[in-house]
Design a binder for these strands. Sequence first.
DNA 1: TAGTTGACCCCGC
DNA 2: CGCGGGGCCAACT
Length: 121
Amino acid sequence: MSVKKQKASTPKPDNFFEDVYAVVRLIPAGRVSSYGAIARYLGRSGSARMVGWALNNALVLHDVPAQRVVNREGRLSGKIHFGSPTRMQELLEAEGIKVENDQVVDFKERFWDPELELGST
DNA sequence: TAGTTGACCCCGC
DNA sequence: CGCGGGGCCAACT
């Protein structure tokens, strides 16, 4: 069976990426989450960077509110990828989230942990 | 083909 | 208590 590895032309069911989109989509308006929290919830605590990559693809898909996802400092680390230097902040303010100096105000109170909200049995 | 970067986080000094 | 380096996995050059 000379089955060569066709890396392209495949639906690519990347569960990890898809799962990231699902969790981010579950984030309610007015709340924010962090890469590490999502990564940990998916079982990839060490691969928090991949969450960022997933969201990067999310921007292309245009179906995920990536603006609600920030780093563990509550800082808009990914605002650079929104095309405009203030795009992410504007979106967050539109959701009711206050942002000062590229930093989410009361981030600790606005923080939304998937494992805490969803993973509660 | 292989090397480097990257929307990060944690540990050690 | 502050700063630096390593680790993680995938995509880009």
